[in-house]
Nucleic acid binder design. Structure first.
Lengths: 395, 395
DNA sequence: GGCACTTCGTTGCACTGGACAAAAAAGTGG
DNA sequence: CCACTTTTTTGTCCAGTGCAACGAAGTGCC
């Protein structure tokens, strides 16, 4: 709209995005990818390099026999980093990510007193500062991203409601900004991971995607050509209470057969426990058992994958994205689950283009840290020229 | 991206959009609404007025007691028009719309030979030319919009598949452009109507909306902040085969209980006919009977509205738009149906903000013509400075 | 009527950022 | 060392915006 102010970063964002997706890449190639003129690419690269976001990587591409060789540029991962705090039921996950979204340091901090959100956040912030000082003191932090389940008001940086923690209207953004001195952004982890998959994951070249998250909560996020779709009340992707689950199971919402009540980590682990497959109701244990070859455990996770597949098929038909990415323990860890998921989608959906349009999450067990950091990385890639004067952690 | 070419119209589009939504409006108000400077508003207004899209309407706003009076501008509806052709099972609906999306002339042309798409389109084009000459010869046509059910390739202007007509891969755009000499755009009518509701209907000030169309086909369209969401295969909004219908009804797709098989015009009319409510299976007759006070007919349409409501609730939960607009005969014509629809959504959806977020279509019985014309109007409002040199109809 | 006052709309000027074109750079092969 | 190719940079121009100063068009007071 206003090239002098708001829209300033758009061309730079296109350039940086192309560099992120296409590894070390020559400027002419960037020009082709973005539709910008070579001149504009040069100038934007210079600006981005000046901020320390891009770097020249001479010799990283083979010479093609004729003409001046490429002088490729790549994302600079050695100067800056982004911090992430994921807030879950029992612990916070801290992470430091480079600009390629790779986790360079991680730490899990159990809550001492989950009811005292000030203490939880203060501890997380302090441990984060220490993590930075101990592992990557030379990297300058550009910001902090916060991800959580539940209902998040992104604008205000407020965690409106986190059911399992019982937090309500916690100004997470302000509290953490005050404690760390960093710019803080907050978002739901389903949305954050959707964007992370698009930026750093397997869904890189796709314009639209849906991310389906199955953990203690079930949540979906939608990204279309126009960007992440937040929805009228920041509540888009409400698949938790679709009637796709077991009709015999009562949901706290008052109805039966809700997806979340059936397939959430807790519900499924409890079911496996009651069936005698695992000694205690822990979804991680169920995963371990299946990976170790326990047939009953595998069968249970495959069944869960099928139920999740019905939800994915529904999302395919309604939203018709290029890909659906699924974050669920079994699908991530077991090929059988991923196959069952794909088969169910193919059987249920009317438009799913091919089984390869259903992807397990790319981030393995780092999902939570990546989700949190990506909240900030998303903003940086959206308007790279707008990064704040780097501030040192801990002031 | 490129202010000299593609993005040129963005500011002008913002201005024209604000004028469209806020009736006759002063330039300073436009500046406030769009975030542009008064200077930019002046210049863009001049450009738009030069193209005949805007007009000065002195004295249309009351004087506010102090200072220079407003000199309001409004959309110019007296110089240009847009043509629309809606292709349905039994007839084409032709319409001439002004720039406010109002139907100024209409004509229904039954197909002589539905299998001969060339003849159908040629007839429609010729009748359209005559309609223009007879009713609004002084208005210059800016283009032709074509809407149809089924699967449309917007890019190529091809009707890929129209089930009930049996057309496949018909290059509607090229054929009509050749016959009329007008620029032609083609889209599905669910998407076209969604955009029409946003431009001219009750959903004007909302950024995101879902339009649910229930006729001989059932289809939905999604508009988010980023614009109309077409989906990977132009197939977004596939609610036709959701299992929300009567499990006893078989769908041609091979499964049971599909929404479309249950509530399509044809299916419901047949059901009413078999129940002895109406003498022949016509949905229009059922609507007339209900309006005339036939209790059984009303009850049937209310039941249909409830089923449609379940689909609307699902869309609310998954997409979480500001509003859902429903185009369905009963909901448009009978208050009881609209109430039943709202009640069902409120009871089924988890996030539906209020009953007023469910709206019946704004266009009454002109829906088809508005849908078609809006395909072209959408393009004009997206980049108003890009309108073609006005060409006279009929070469 | 003339003049202060208020608000709206327009014009002049500087700036940003991109395209286009020409020049420079950096290789190879003769 | 030169011709040749392709990449990258630099110089110039132009569109479009914001800012600020200015002109315009009313009211109300004297």
């Amino acid at each position: 709209m206003n090239p002098g102010v708001a829209g300033r970063g758009t061309a730079a964002a296109a350039v940086l995005g192309a560099v992120l997706r296409h590894g070390p890449v020559a400027r002419t190639t960037i020009a082709r990818l973005t539709g910008l003129s070579p001149a504009a690419v040069t100038r934007n690269c210079a600006a981005l390099a000046g901020l320390g976001l891009l770097t020249e990587v001479a010799g990283s591409l083979p010479y093609r026999g004729m003409g001046r060789p490429h002088s490729p540029v790549d994302v600079e991962t050695g100067r800056h980093l982004v911090a992430g705090i994921h807030i879950a039921h029992e612990y916070c996950t801290l992470a430091l990510l480079d600009l390629r979204g790779r986790v360079r340091a991680r730490l899990r901090v159990p809550h001492r007193d989950p009811d005292d959100h000030r203490e939880v956040l203060a501890t997380a912030a302090d441990r984060l500062v220490r993590l930075h000082a101990e592992h990557l003191p030379g990297h300058v932090p550009l910001g902090l991203g916060v991800a959580a389940g539940g209902w998040v008001d992104t604008e205000a940086g407020v965690l409106v409601e986190h059911a399992s923690l019982g937090w309500r209207d916690v100004p997470v953004g302000d509290l953490l900004a005050a404690r760390t001195g960093l710019p803080v952004l907050v978002d739901s982890h389903a949305r954050a991971l959707a964007r992370a998959e698009q930026l750093f994951g397997a869904a890189g070249h796709h314009g639209s995607l849906v991310h389906l998250f199955v953990g203690n909560v079930v949540d979906a996020a939608i990204i279309t050509g126009g960007g992440t779709h937040r929805g009228a009340r920041s509540a888009a992707g409400g698949v938790a209470h679709l009637a796709l689950g077991d009709p015999a199971i009562e949901c706290p919402c008052g109805r039966n057969g809700c997806l979340e009540a059936t397939v959430s980590d807790l519900a499924w682990a409890r079911r496996a426990h009651e069936a005698g497959v695992i000694p205690r109701p822990s979804i991680a244990d169920l995963g371990d058992a299946a990976v170790a070859g326990n047939a009953a455990a595998t069968a249970l996770l495959v069944e869960r994958a099928r139920t999740v597949g019905r939800a994915a098929a529904l999302l395919f038909d309604i939203v018709n994205p290029d890909v659906v990415v699924v974050t669920e323990l079994g699908v991530i860890r077991l090929r059988e689950c991923a196959d069952a998921l794909r088969a169910e989608v193919a059987a249920t959906s009317r438009v799913c283009p091919s089984p390869s349009a259903v992807l397990p999450s790319s981030f393995g067990l780092d999902v939570l840290g990546v989700a949190a950091g990506s909240v900030q990385l998303d903003a940086i890639y959206a308007d790279p020229l707008d990064i704040r004067n780097p501030i040192r952690l801990g002031v």
